[in-house]
Write a protein that binds this DNA or RNA. Sequence first.
DNA 1: GCGATGTTTCGGCATGGACCGAAGCATCGC
DNA 2: GCGATGCTTCGGTCCATGCCGAAACATCGC
Lengths: 224, 224
Amino acid sequence: MLHALLDGRALTAGELARVAGVAAPTASGHLAKMEETGLIAVVAQGRHRYFRLSGPAVARMLEAIMEVASSAPPGPRKLSVGPKEKALRHARTCYDHLAGTLGVGLADALTAAGHVELTEEAGILTEGGCAFLAAIGLNVEALKARRAARSGRILCRPCLDWSERRFHLAGALGAELCTHSLQAGWIRRLPGSRAVLVTRAGERVFREEFGLRGMVEETGVAAL
Amino acid sequence: MLHALLDGRALTAGELARVAGVAAPTASGHLAKMEETGLIAVVAQGRHRYFRLSGPAVARMLEAIMEVASSAPPGPRKLSVGPKEKALRHARTCYDHLAGTLGVGLADALTAAGHVELTEEAGILTEGGCAFLAAIGLNVEALKARRAARSGRILCRPCLDWSERRFHLAGALGAELCTHSLQAGWIRRLPGSRAVLVTRAGERVFREEFGLRGMVEETGVAAL
DNA sequence: GCGATGTTTCGGCATGGACCGAAGCATCGC
DNA sequence: GCGATGCTTCGGTCCATGCCGAAACATCGC
């Protein structure tokens, strides 16, 4: 259930029961405990109750757990779920930023262009990167509150991708990139999933501005 | 047990059984499972078997879990352990770097002097900071392999301190600072604990070089 | 109002896992 | 060699937890 909430959206108790593959009473019990201990927050809306992660700290914890879990020796258990897996690996949200092939690709492209400098431990958005992102519409000003004191540089957090085993952009910068991509219609959420779809407009932007290729998935994109 | 291993040292099965408050067979069973799943690594030495965390990813996961756990609502359960608590809050190792009042104080001092710039998401060691740390003996060269590509700046990772609720220095920089402080005799490990003691020499360095005050604890320091 | 839908509470079952004592190995000191 | 120490395996007990079905409660659409 927590994994399902990792995309930052709020899901109803029933949806969470379904994704977890348990009956409603079971899910309800777990959700009550997780809310009581502060892992998740709930907001009632009509006859639905929407649950979401209580904050970024919980998301970071889950990411850290998944990092360890995904690098564990290939035990007898397989978590692969088949058909949905492909879309998830290609592009998905990771709490508040983008992951998967798309997320890693964007991070690589920004790095190659000198817009972002990323190490295992931290990252910097360069001045050129500021200008580039502002030019394509990101609200860079909102990020500046978090910049390092003297150098004036905007720092960002790397996040290890469990499917690609590579680092992508998280933190405020990653969140803004994801938010803007959604608002600008470059990507679109697949209903009931963490996966996102790259639209035609997005494909053009990611190709022309970022230099990314092959970001459009075959299935379903024609409808967009 | 994992918490006990979080200071980066390797402990024997018996020691881990003791800190966990369980019988040897119980500890042995848990340790076997944790080793099988890759959480910990073991090295046999004579009739002892030394267990340690298998890598930084596990430490990051535990830190992330502790961050969430420490900010949980003050439930009925209390984890406070009393006498040892004070020394732990004052200065301790956190996998491979320093935490507690000392760790946070060093991070604050370096920030105030403009040697380090730290945000919630990431940090930078400035050029002045490089020079400063090199002057007091740190192996800054070893860090340079991890610097950001173009700006030449060394990045570091912030780590939320569960006792101070503030950020301190982790990552390669934090590890080097901790290692050097131990080698130079500025701090000393308290046997069988994550807590460290600030020596007279360390107190002088932390006061004169970093501008920290009150880093010597009353108890026990006279013996040094 | 009334049935339909979403959610929680209650009761009870069953599995799993946490634990320990006793015994079996391995290694150390001598 | 032999006893002492450290660790693991084995066997068995016991409690906690996960789970579900039935029923209660709340809200919606009408």
